[in-house]
Design a protein around this nucleic acid. Structure first.
Length: 500
RNA sequence: GCUCCCGUAGUGUAGUCCGGCCAAUCAUUCGGGCCUUUCGAGUCCGACACCCGGGUUCAAAUCCCGGCGGGAGCACCA
């Protein structure tokens, strides 16, 4: 029987059967495997090379969400084991960013406090015969690995390895002269998993926190494995880019017989049109191109905050995206949609006239405007204006052009006008004219405040706005027919940052 | 080259493990109606997708095989 016939037959029985029923999207993350309430320990492990950017917020918030669900513990672990890529300010900025995001951190761990721990792990690996000190130059060593061959040092005894490691620690080797290598399997089909460097020498750059006290630095795979175990991590959620690192770290877990955390790798995120690279930003700030880490052109968390993007919107966005391991394209559009849900009900409305042009109003002595701060919430009050002759208001160039062409306009909350001899002639205050097709425009009083709205592309929209009360500072307002913006200062000039 | 991960609308996502109620979810976006003194919100209608080809089966988005496509790693960065 064709589908249409079935449809007709069913409709004949009861038309309600074919009604669409809406199903609620639950928008929740799946449960974590083997998670016990109160026992979950998770972490965020940023390198302190700068403040957090939008890309970091996924791992920060996903972990936070689960820690809260299972009433667990959240560790912020600063991975500062590469002294060449550290911005000392980041030790302060990262916790600030996490706090702004609403991430509850129970414990902060700084890896540069833990050199002795990594050295101890290294010793134990050596004693187990699972690590050796290699003094091959980097390139031939890599080449041998590629071919699945052992370098001459791989067969050294634990005693030899310990001696050589002592020499590393006592500055007996310079950079690239010796490394401690963790053995895995040289014949592993995946070349990315074969023997990897566990510790290396860096003595050309002092560490911002430990100076030149330590020159043997752990590589991430060693320090991460050690800390994930020692800090009692039960679940690790991170990006797919760490898939091969997990494989390497699991060797260390297996050598020690440690219980592995449950790993989950989500897909990579491509963030279009965002400036995220800390080195680029750093250079830009030093060169004066960017005003700072919170320059609104940047994709940093503090730049988003400055623009009026709310942390809850970022959280909702990542919750919606979820945990899938497909690679995705970040959608500013969707983030803005979540943000609008939050700011629209709370943002007070004001008039901001860009490209302002004056218009003289005649035919009336006094005009009074009482505009609601928010159309859906009259109880919040009104912005009031009283205009007396001679009356001049400001309109956007485009709106004034429209008045000239059409001959009529309604100024919102104020009055209706007819165009005559370059002036606006008062024609009443009945907003019923809108039903007749009269267009509506916003306006600003002649004694309004000079306003500048900084756009995310770095441009500035200048104009005249209503005067905002000082309480609007730091809040997101809506400039009608323009968009949302976060108010930075209300006087002597109005300065705001465009949200969306 | 080798290894791993992944392919559902413009974007994100549900469904895939355990085949049928999927003639495919929800959100966003876009188009339109209603409502509305901005924009939005709300509400209603509409548009757009199972990477391709085989196979198994009464039945495939779902299972199998083979392609193709995308991404990541093969660092003395994290």
């Amino acid at each position: 029987m064709p589908f249409e016939d079935i449809q007709r037959a069913v409709e004949a029985i009861d038309p309600n059967l074919l009604k669409r029923t809406k199903t609620e999207r639950r928008n929740v993350l799946p449960d974590l495997p083997v998670a016990v309430e109160g026992k979950v320990v998770m972490r965020m492990a940023p390198g302190p090379s700068g403040p957090l950017h939008i890309g970091h917020t996924r791992v920060a918030l996903l972990n936070d969400e689960y820690v809260k669900r299972y009433k667990g513990k959240y560790i912020d672990r600063l991975e500062d084991t590469n002294p060449e890529k550290i911005d000392p300010e980041a030790y302060r900025m990262i916790p600030e960013d996490l706090a702004w995001l609403g991430v509850h951190v129970d414990e902060t761990v700084v890896q540069s406090d833990r050199f002795e721990i990594y050295y101890d792990i290294a010793r134990q690996l050596i004693d187990m015969g699972k690590a050796y000190v290699c003094t091959c130059p980097p390139e031939p060593w890599r080449q041998m690995k590629e071919e699945g061959k052992a370098c001459p040092h791989r067969s050294q005894s634990s005693e030899e390895a310990n001696e050589q490691f002592d020499r590393m620690l006592s500055h007996g080797f310079g950079e690239e002269e010796a490394v401690l290598v963790v053995k895995t399997d040289l014949k592993h089909p995946n070349p990315a998993v074969r023997d990897f460097v566990g510790l290396r020498v860096v003595d050309s750059v002092p560490h911002p926190r430990t100076g030149d006290r330590y020159t043997v630095y752990p590589m991430m795979n060693l320090s991460v494995a050690a800390d994930d175990h020692l800090l009692g991590l039960t679940h690790v959620i991170r990006g797919k880019d760490h898939l091969n690192n997990t494989l390497r770290q699991e060797y260390i877990f297996n050598y020690f017989g440690w219980r592995k955390p449950s790993y989950h790798h989500y897909g990579l995120v491509h963030i279009p049109e965002a400036i995220l690279k800390t080195s680029t930003i750093h250079k830009g700030i030093l060169g004066g191109e960017y005003s700072g880490w919170d320059d609104v052109r940047l994709g940093t968390v503090r730049a988003l905050a400055k623009r009026g993007i709310r942390a809850e919107a970022i959280r909702s966005y990542w919750l919606d995206v979820g945990m899938k391991d497909v690679d995705i394209e970040f959608s500013w559009e969707n983030l803005y949609a979540f943000n609008k849900q939050i700011i629209d009900p709370v943002a007070d409305r004001y008039f901001f006239v860009w490209d302002p042009e004056p218009l003289e109003i005649v035919g009336v002595d006094v005009l009074e405007a009482r505009s609601p701060l928010h159309p859906d919430h009259p109880e919040r009050g009104t912005r009031d204006h009283v205009l007396r002759q001679p009356i001049t208001v400001l309109m956007t160039r485009e709106d004034l052009e429209g008045l000239r062409e059409r001959g009529t306009v309604r100024l919102k909350d104020l009055c209706n006008l007819r165009w005559e001899n370059g002036k606006g002639v008062y024609t009443g205050n009945d907003h019923g004219v809108l039903k007749e097709g009269v267009k509506i425009s916003h306006w600003a009083p002649a004694d309004g405040v000079e306003a500048e709205v900084h756009m995310p592309d770095g441009s500035v929209r200048k104009g005249i706005a209503e005067r905002l009360p000082v309480q609007e500072k730091d809040k997101v307002v809506q400039f009608e027919r323009f968009g949302f913006a976060r108010v930075e200062t209300t006087s002597p000039r109005l300065e705001a940052y465009f949200t969306q």
